[in-house]
Design a binder for these strands. Structure first.
Lengths: 222, 222
DNA sequence: AACTTGCATATTGAATGCAATCCTCGAAAG
DNA sequence: CTTTCGAGGATTGCATTCAATATGCAAGTT
C-alpha cells in the first residue's frame, strides 16, 4: 500500500493513462509500424471500454504516431525514408535551439549532471555497450533540452523524436562513425561549459545530421 | 460541380470537423484565452453529442490550445509572457529551417507566388492597412513553409504558431518597426531569390525575434 | 474459370445512460 | 459578521447501446 501523502491517490484518467501506455508501446516497438490496432483487443487488454481508448487513439493520431483510416481502424504510422529525413531535420534544428538556449540558461548542477552522464557514456562506448550507450545518449539530449528552460521546446522535441525513436537501432554503427559521434559529444559538452551558444547550436545540429546519415546510409538527399 | 472521379463525396467525421471548427474559433479569437468551454453548450451549438466533442477537446489539449482540468472541464489556454517568448523562439527556429530548406527546394512558380504576395503586402503597408498586411504576411510565411518541402515542418510550424496567432494583434506597431519589418521581408525575399539558405534562415529567425520584441515591448529576457 | 452482385457479419462512429466528482448556496457555529 | 459544513444540483468520466460503414463469402452470370 502506498503512502497517501506522497501518492496523491495517483488518479490519472483512464484516457491519459491509455495515451501514455500506447505511446510507450509504439515508441518502444511493442507495436510495430504498419500493424493494425484492433480496438476490441486493446480494450480487453487494458480492461477499459472503447471510449477512453478511442480518445487516446485520436490524440496519438494528432501526434503522428498512429494513422486513423475512416471506418477501418487505426494503424501504427510507418515513416518513409523521406519522412524520416524530414523528422530529423526538425529534431536537429530543435536540438540546436535547445543547445543555444541551454548555454544561456544552464546552471552548474545541470551541467555537472550532463558531465557525469557523459563520462558514463564514454565508458559504455569503450566497452562497446550499445544499448547502455544509447540510454546515456538520450539522457544527455533530454537534459540539454530541459536546461534550455523552454517547456514547449521540450514538448516539441519529444513529439518529433518519438516518431523516429525506433529508428535509432537501424543506424549503421561503424566504429568510425561511433568514434566521431563521441568526439562530437565532447565538443558539444565543451561548448556548453564555455556557454558558447553560437557554437553549441550548430554542433548539435551537425551531430544529429550525421546521425541521420548513418540511418539512411546516405540514401536520401538533404 | 466537381467531377465525381476526383471528389469521392466529401465525408469528414464529426470528430475531425469539430477539431477544425474549434481550432479556428480559438485561433481567430472567437473563444478567448482563459474562458471556460462548457461541453453541453458547444454540443447544442454544433448539434452533436458529447462523444465527438470530447474527442476533439482531447486533441486540442494535445495541441496546447485548451487545458483540461480533471472533472472541471476545459479552458482555452492562456499563455504567459514567458510562454509567448518560448513559443516564438520555436517558431523563429522552425521558420529559419523552412527558409533554409526552401532555398534548396523552391521552384520558380512558388517563388513567383511569394513575390506577388509580397508586392500586395508592400502596397497594404504603404496604405497602412494592418489587417490586409497581416493576411499577406501570413500567406508568405506559410508559402515559405510549404516550399521547404517538409510536411512535418509545416505541421509543427502550424502547431506552435497557432498558439500565438492571436498575439499578433497585440504588437506595438510603431512606424519604425513596421518599416524595419518591410525591409526584413525584402531581404528575406532576396535571399530566397539567390537560393542563399545560409543567409535566409538567420534573416527569418531575426525577423521573428524582432516581432517577439514588439509583442512584449522588450519585457521578457531572451 | 473469373468477375460481379447481394447478403451476413464484424467493426467503427456517434449517442445515450449511469456513476463519480465538483460547484453552489444557504444554514449554523464561532 | 465571518467562516465552516453539507445537501442538492450540475458536470464530467466512462460504459453501454444504437447506427453507419466496411469486409468476407457465397451464389449467379458471362
Amino acid at each position: 500500500m502506498q503512502s497517501s501523502k506522497v501518492m496523491p491517490i495517483a488518479r490519472l484518467s483512464l484516457h491519459d493513462e491509455t495515451v501514455a501506455r500506447l505511446r510507450t508501446m509504439i515508441t518502444e516497438g511493442d507495436l510495430l509500424p504498419g500493424s493494425r490496432i484492433a480496438e476490441r483487443e486493446l480494450c480487453d487488454r487494458f480492461g477499459i471500454s472503447r471510449t477512453p481508448l478511442r480518445e487516446a487513439l485520436k490524440v496519438l493520431a494528432s501526434e503522428g504516431l498512429v494513422e486513423l483510416l475512416p471506418h477501418r481502424g487505426a494503424r501504427v504510422t510507418r515513416l518513409s525514408e523521406v519522412e524520416l529525413r524530414d523528422a530529423f531535420e526538425i529534431v536537429a534544428t530543435l536540438e540546436a535551439l535547445a543547445g543555444e538556449l541551454a548555454c544561456r540558461r544552464i546552471d552548474e548542477a545541470a551541467l555537472a549532471h550532463i558531465e557525469a552522464v557523459h563520462l558514463r557514456m564514454a565508458e559504455h562506448y569503450r566497452r562497446a555497450e550499445l544499448a547502455e550507450y544509447f540510454a546515456c545518449n538520450q539522457i544527455i539530449h533530454e537534459a540539454i533540452n530541459r536546461a534550455a528552460g523552454n517547456a514547449q521546446l521540450t514538448e516539441m522535441y519529444a513529439l518529433v523524436s518519438n516518431r523516429v525513436r525506433r529508428a535509432r537501432y537501424m543506424a549503421n554503427h561503424s566504429p568510425e562513425r561511433w568514434a566521431a559521434a563521441m568526439r562530437e559529444h565532447e565538443e558539444i559538452l565543451d561548448a556548453l561549459r564555455r556557454r558558447d551558444g553560437k557554437a553549441c547550436g550548430p554542433l548539435l545540429r551537425a551531430h544529429l545530421e550525421h546521425k541521420l546519415y548513418t540511418l539512411t546510409d546516405g540514401n536520401v538527399a538533404p
